[in-house]
Amino acid sequence: MHRFANPTRFLKIAAAVQPWMAGLTIILFGTGLYMAFFTAPPDYQQGESIRIMYVHVPAAWMGMFCYAAMAVASAVALIWKHPLADVAAKATAPVGAAFTFLSLATGSLWGKPMWGTWWVWDARLTSMLILLFLYIGYMALQGAFDDRTRGAKASAVLALVGAVNLPIIKFSVDWWNTLHQTSSFMKQGGPSMPPEMWIPAVVMAVAFKTYYVWVLLVRIRQELTANKVRILRLKQVHGG
């Protein structure tokens, strides 16, 4: 991994990969949305509202995935002082927060016709809301200190401590009696849905992943450029 620690080398790789991720994202989103809204059949119980799940479920997966990636990057930054790890964690936070918010919003849209209410203090919903607050807390700590290094360390510690919430989200429907349904896709015996329903979900999930990589590369490149400008300004101030 230290081969990619050099910002110049990383920027070259990112510049080559970024257009491919952008193209894949557009193709996969177009394909996934078409399949979800036009080829996938309605559910025999949930009817047309099942189509919300093609956005809700991948968004929930990505909310958790991004936080796991942020926690790993924070650990690498704290332990091995990898120069790009903190930048990657910082770049991931708003993307993960957006996915988590999208998951909560679409879940609320689905909950109204299914449960008769926009929100319940269900174990899965509550733990996802806590995840959103953890993202917000991480971003707040980043800018809470005049010393950027102290802010980075404080937010990294929060990211690692907050990672305990991930297994709670994952297993909440198994540990507690909740309104939220159990997984219909990730089961030991395979998906319980027919292919015409789970294939669009997989396509959308991959689309969300490529979108994350695309935006992550864009944000890291922007952050590295901003750091270069900041260093040049500091040199000019001290030089003057």
Score class of each variant (00 low, 15 high):
L166M: 04
L216V: 05
K112F: 06
T117F: 02
H56S: 00
T210A: 13
Q46W: 13
R219N: 10
A85W: 06
M139Q: 12
A140F: 06
Q45L: 14
L141K: 02
W110N: 11
A93T: 07
G162W: 03
A22E: 14
C66Y: 01
T92D: 07
G190N: 08
A22R: 15
S108Y: 00
I220P: 13
K90V: 04
A69R: 02
G63F: 09
M193R: 08
F38D: 07
A5S: 15
L102M: 14
S183K: 03
V87K: 07
A144Q: 06
F208A: 14
M128T: 05
A226G: 08
G239S: 08
E223I: 03
Y212M: 13
H238C: 06
A105E: 03
L216M: 14
R3E: 11
A97G: 02
M35V: 01
A73V: 12
T39K: 02
M1N: 10
I27D: 11
A15V: 15
P41A: 12
K170F: 05
G151H: 03
G32Q: 04
G96M: 09
L125I: 04
F29A: 04
Q236W: 00
L224S: 14
G116N: 02
F10D: 03
T100M: 06
I168Q: 04
G116P: 07
A73R: 10
A156P: 05
E223N: 09
M35A: 01
G116A: 12
I52D: 09
R51D: 07
T210S: 13
